[in-house]
């Protein structure tokens, strides 16, 4: 009974917590890339004479940007399929929020102990991205159509890497429950698998989060805002909110699957934070060091990386299962 109450409470707590952490990760992404580019970026400590105007810190700048969009006019184009266009951002957000309920946080197992939670979580993440494709297609804009088309192509290849990496882990550990995977005992073989499959998942996350060189679905200089061209106001804000949750969710999933047992006990929380910051730092490094690929180059790159790495991690996983 106590367990049930604890779970219920933690389910309520995790949503604002995930939002906060996602915003912090986004802030880090922006601040670090600004420092890489000889810029200042959002201020951590505001200049003295601007404090009365702007507050002492702009740590929550990504959140303010989203909140600003909620105060703006929302325009729905005449030529769009209105219902799909309007509902897609919200459905995408719901899927993303649902997904994070299946990803453990230090001290909060949430729903990650339910059977097949790994499959549920990855399905929900896919669903969230699916609605970032459906909405733009319904908007009737040529830019959005091209953006959505690129998103589909990118999604297909990056999803392949994502699925291969998480199921290699699942096969090696003989479990489809995220909680069990995130608790498990380490061994030398598993450590090796973790490195290979972890690299694979990192590559997949780049595509899912549109980190350069894989930001072609919203390539601004080529196709205006790509998928999001016709979105404005609350609907655009909802998409951005989804991205914040997705960022938190993917970082959390990565840590719980590849760095066990960091995501289990509350005592691991400092290490969880360190791991998340390192992960975001790696994302930023890739972001600032690369120009954008063409969609064809991106697919080629994924096929070159995903198939060998995926095959390798599967062989290792099978070997661990059969031999060890």
């Amino acid at each position: 009974m106590v367990d049930l109450i604890y779970t219920a409470v933690s389910l309520v707590v995790i949503v604002p917590l995930a939002l906060f952490l996602g915003v912090i990760y986004s802030y880090l992404l922006r601040k670090l890339s600004a420092r890489f580019q000889w810029r200042v970026g959002p201020m951590l400590r505001m200049y003295g004479d601007l404090k009365p105007l702007l507050g002492t810190t702009r740590l929550l700048q990504p959140l303010y940007d989203i909140l600003k969009l909620y105060g703006k006019e929302t325009i729905v184009p005449d030529v769009s399929r209105r219902r799909l266009f309007v509902y897609s951002p919200y459905l995408s957000l719901i899927f993303a929020v649902a997904a994070i309920l299946f990803i453990p946080f230090p001290g909060m197992p949430l729903l990650s102990w339910v059977p097949y939670s790994l499959i549920i979580a990855s399905y929900l993440l896919i669903g969230s991205i699916l609605f970032t494709i459906l909405g733009p297609i319904a908007s009737g804009s040529p830019w959005a159509a091209i953006g959505a088309r690129r998103e589909v192509e990118l999604f297909l290849v990056s999803e392949l890497g994502f699925v291969l990496s998480i199921f290699a882990i699942a096969i090696a550990r003989q479990s489809l429950v995220v909680w069990e995977l995130s608790r498990g005992a380490q061994s030398v073989y598993l450590a090796f698998l973790t490195i290979v499959a972890g690299a694979l998942m990192f590559a997949a996350v780049l595509g899912k989060l549109h980190i350069k060189p894989f930001d072609m679905p919203e390539a601004e200089a080529e196709i205006v805002a790509g998928s999001y061209t016709e979105y404005s106001g609350k609907l655009l804000g909802t998409y951005y909110l989804t991205k914040v949750f997705l960022l938190y969710g993917l970082v959390g999933l990565f840590i719980s699957l590849f760095l066990p047992p960091i995501a289990t006990d509350v005592l691991w929380l400092p290490l969880y934070v360190v791991a998340a910051v390192v992960f975001v730092f790696l994302l930023t490094a890739v972001q600032v060091l690369n120009p954008r690929y063409r969609i064809r180059n991106a697919i080629n790159w994924y096929l070159k990386v995903v198939i060998p790495l995926g095959a390798l991690s599967f062989i290792i996983a099978l070997a661990i299962w059969l031999v060890v």
Binding site: F36, K212, D215, E220, V288, L289, R292
Partner: peptide, 16 residues
Amino acid sequence: VADVIGWKTGFMLMWG
């Protein structure tokens, strides 16, 4: 050109 191919870093360095 760095900006057009989506490389903000190159853009910032060159303009610096």
